[in-house]
């Protein structure tokens, strides 16, 4: 019983971090209808940026999140103009290939500099005992930061002028142009925010689990499953999907080896695509 309580709490907290990764993927899809296959590479970028900050600069992994977010935003905007801008109106396959090749380049460079050896960040925070269950502080912090980021994204998209412009472009790019919105600028900023969310989620995940330069792919897959589960293009769906996946992962790991998780995730992906292709909260 105790183990289940632990798994539920852990699952919710880690699910929120997954939701942050998925929100990045979802935003980019929602605004420009591009499936960003370099998502995993940017998650790995965040992991190693956090690792280097802790190792070389001696700052806490949580402090490093702010510069990592800013770096992700800038790298994302540059990546948009380098790899996406000119092919946005081409058939989908072109943007898939373009973001995939970006991913290959980034992972290749990462492998060259960092090798594929596993790394880990130790936060030395211990754990808290609530009643009979014990939860590590680092998970609680990750959950709270994720919640904060999701809330901030919501406020940004619904309450600020730039956020509304992003939503306008996602709903009707032609009308947005006709009413004076610089759609190229809005698209590049959206891509930047998507990459910033991927990077920060990578840093958050790196504070909990060991990782290699190739780990991004694992979390990219999770992001896909979460987006499809919750509904592509729906921010609330990404959070719901993240929570479901986090819970499922933690509960199932009580009964079966963790190695089975990718198999389970893929099965969820296939089943959802078969029975409810728009996801739980997706439109039409």
């Amino acid at each position: 019983m105790l183990a289940y309580v632990n798994a539920v709490i852990s699952g919710i907290l880690i699910g929120l971090a997954y939701a942050i990764a998925a929100l990045g993927l979802n935003l980019i899809w929602g605004v420009m209808k591009v499936i960003n296959l370099s998502h995993g590479a940017f998650i790995a970028f965040g992991m190693f940026a956090a690792y280097m900050s802790v190792k070389l600069l001696g700052v806490s992994v949580y402090t490093s999140l702010i510069p990592i977010f800013v770096a992700g935003l800038i790298v994302g905007i540059v990546a948009f103009f380098v790899s996406l801008y000119r092919v946005l109106n081409a058939p989908e396959l072109t943007t898939l290939l373009s973001t995939y090749s970006l991913s290959l380049i980034l992972i290749g460079l990462g492998t060259f500099f960092f090798t594929t050896n596993p790394r880990a960040i130790d936060t030395h925070l211990g754990s808290i005992t609530l009643g009979y269950s014990s939860i590590s502080y680092s998970r609680i912090i990750v959950g709270l930061i994720s919640l904060f980021l999701a809330g901030t994204l919501y406020l940004f998209l619904f309450k600020t002028s730039l956020g509304k412009a992003i939503r306008a472009v996602s709903q009707n790019p032609t009308a947005a142009k006709l009413y004076g919105i610089n759609t190229t600028l809005v698209l590049s900023i959206s891509f930047g925010i998507g990459v910033a969310f991927a990077s920060v989620s990578g840093a958050l995940i790196a504070s909990l689990f060991p990782f290699t330069i190739l780990s991004g792919g694992v979390y990219e897959l999770k992001s896909f499953v979460i987006c499809v589960l919750g509904g592509l293009g729906s921010p609330a769906g990404a959070i719901l999907g993240g929570l479901i996946l986090g819970l499922l992962e933690n509960l199932l790991s009580l009964k079966m080896p963790v190695d089975y998780m990718p198999f389970i995730e893929f099965s969820i992906l296939v089943i959802i695509l078969l029975i409810k292709p728009n996801g739980i909260l997706g439109r039409r």
Partner: peptide, 26 residues
Amino acid sequence: VIMVPEGRLLFGEMSVLENLQMGAYL
């Protein structure tokens, strides 16, 4: 130079007020 386009091209998921605000984006 402002156009009311064919087929209206509203921001469908936004409220009426938000659509008007988007009109006054500039």
